[in-house]
Design a protein around this nucleic acid. Structure first.
Length: 537
RNA sequence: GGCUCUGUAGCUCAGGGGUUAGAGCAGGGGACUCAUAAGCCUCGUGUCGUGUGUUCAAAUCACACCAGAGCCA
């Protein structure tokens, strides 16, 4: 019955950070999550067995104090904030498989199990921690990095607090050589390369043990056998990735959590939390006898109108307002296409509108619209009776179309979404040019019906393929295109699209079936008005 | 203070010792009409941050400086 079966379907697990619930989601969290969703969707499209994890990190002093300030119990505060994340993911059409909360009941036994393993390995000891502590960072700071008057350099309105307390420490210093070996053996472990260099530099200078417990703090898990101490929020938060791997009806044990999905393939993070994921985390895992994840990718930060975002300056983007106003596909497309993934990127509303109008409304939307219009007039609203083999190899659309799958697959796998989109839009732009050159309206008047059909077929097929390959980024628009082309396929329904055979078929150029009735052309993306002077996001 | 990265057309960025420096967007002009006034064609003499060097030759290398960003637990 329980014979091990050879697995033929590739497994793919990806995480966003578990976002800290001290405040409602900001645009940076939305960005990471959109990217993770697009990656997960592309793997599902290929028929892989995918687990996309997101969630919230809910312990720590900062949360405790935020709740106190609001006069509510910490759990109530966390529930309220976690719900705002979930609502935004829904709005952005994020298809996560697990929403991992560090206050979930099953998380505690996992943390205990893990702590025990590290403890048994002799990597935890009690010592003294003295220094300046920033509650907002939940980190000890070096005296010299503080601002005048003992203010935190990151939270410049918050004074750091002097702490002199017993803490449990993790023997990070023991893992310096193993970490270096890891970075050496797996050059792709930290991406992009600039981040890897940063980590290499840091480790080269020597690693010190770090404190993994706090005293005078209730909001968190107690250290086993010494409950005066509470486990440091980061130690507990990182383990949320493992808890997320449990199936809903699994007993919450480490073994159960690790049985299928470990090691995780990609941890997608912002560059601010690189150190925790690229150094602390693999060391903790090594100590517990686990394989480190495959890739930690630290992406860049977003700026608005070229300036750093910040609540104090009021220069922020509200993701909820942005999506409410423009829709999920528009927002997803802009961030994935216009920002070179890995580097910092800028949001500017005028550019946002220009790009969406040019690409989605004009180039793609209008292309479908004009071609369907002609299909209706010249071909009785049916896919023309042409087969791909009738179309000469030097047809510009066929030439691009037949190699598009491989190019785009490679781009997605390299997490180069900008290139993936650019490659697809090259085909779309070539379609528009091809129509103008061929002028099917003239061919029709000249009674060259066969040629009209070849032109329309190759354009319709190119639009279809583009929609298919863009579906991880703009699933709703891809749905509209597929529907108008006469398909009954929902890119938001993973049980429909998550089959390797489907990918083999639909990612090819030349599969449109002759005679398939197409729907009435209807604009898929309404042009956006230029921003008004008073408009704000 | 130390180290790293960035500075190229109005905007976002590619290029990276060797003919007249590129793309997309925005803007000007034109022909067409199937289409969401869309698409197509066409138009860019920009101190390639500043200065000094290396070289037959520098946006491309070196050094210094200026501006912005990041890392230095």
């Amino acid at each position: 019955m329980n014979k091990p079966q050879a697995r033929t379907t590739p497994l793919f697990a990806i995480t966003t950070p578990l976002y800290y619930v001290n405040d409602v989601p900001h645009i940076g969290s939305a960005y990471t999550t959109m990217v993770a969703d697009a990656i997960a969707r592309f793997h599902r499209l290929q028929g892989h067995d995918v687990l996309m994890i997101t969630g919230t990190d809910e312990h720590g002093q900062k949360i405790q104090r935020s709740a106190e300030a609001k006069g509510v119990p910490p759990q109530e505060h966390c529930d309220a904030i976690a719900a705002t994340f979930d609502a935004l993911w829904d709005q952005l059409n994020i298809q996560y498989d697990r929403f991992s909360r560090t206050t979930a009941a099953k998380h505690h036994p996992i943390v205990k199990d893990f702590f025990q393993r590290v403890w048994d390995n002799g990597d935890i000891y009690l010592s003294k921690q003295q220094g300046w502590y920033c509650v907002s960072c939940e980190e000890f700071k070096d005296e010299r990095e503080l601002l005048e008057g003992h203010y935190c350099p990151i939270h410049s309105n918050k004074q750091v607090e002097w702490r002199d307390e017993d803490n449990y420490f993790f023997r990070l210093s023991q893992y310096q050589d193993q970490l270096k070996a890891l970075y050496q053996e797996r050059p792709d472990f930290i991406q992009p390369e600039s981040r890897r260099n940063e980590v290499l530099n840091f480790v080269e200078k020597g690693l010190q043990d770090f404190s993994i417990s706090r005293v005078n703090l209730d909001w968190g898990f107690p250290i086993p056998n010494d409950p005066k101490h509470t486990i440091y929020v980061w130690f507990d938060a990182l383990l949320g990735y493992i808890t997320a791997l449990l199936d809903p009806d699994d007993d919450p044990t480490l073994d159960n959590a690790l049985k299928k999905w470990w090691p995780i393939n990609i941890h997608l993070i912002g560059k601010d939390i690189l150190r925790f994921h690229a150094i602390y985390w693999p060391a903790m895992l090594m100590s517990a006898g686990l394989t480190p994840p495959e890739i930690v990718f630290g992406h860049g930060f977003l700026t608005k109108d070229g300036r750093k975002m910040g609540k104090t300056t009021g220069n922020t983007i509200d993701p909820v307002a942005l999506v409410s106003r423009y829709g999920s596909d528009a927002v997803r497309y802009y961030f994935l296409k216009e920002i070179e993934f890995g580097q910092d990127g800028d949001f500017n509303e005028t550019r946002f509108i220009n790009v969406l109008n040019a690409d989605l409304a004009n180039d793609l939307g209008n292309l479908l619209n004009r071609t369907l219009g002609m299909t209706k007039k010249y071909c009785q609203a049916q896919i023309p009776a042409v087969s791909a083999s009738d179309i000469p190899e030097d047809n510009p659309l066929k030439a691009l179309g037949v190699e598009l799958r491989d190019r785009v697959t490679q781009a997605y796998h390299q997490l180069n979404f900008s290139h993936a989109c650019t490659d697809i839009f090259t085909l779309i732009q070539t379609c528009n040019k091809y129509i103008d050159e061929q002028a099917p309206w003239s061919l029709y008047k000249e009674k060259q019906q066969k040629q009209v059909e070849i032109v329309l077929y190759s354009v319709l097929e190119s639009v279809r393929l583009s929609a298919y390959l863009l579906s991880p980024v703009i699933p709703n628009l891809s749905n509209k295109i597929y529907q108008q082309l006469g398909f009954d396929l929902d890119f938001n329904n993973s049980s429909q699209i998550n089959h390797p055979d489907l990918f083999q078929h639909h990612a090819q150029w030349g599969i449109l079936a002759a005679g398939q009735p197409v729907k009435k052309p209807k604009p898929i993306f309404a042009k956006l008005d230029p921003p008004t002077a008073t408009a704000s996001t």
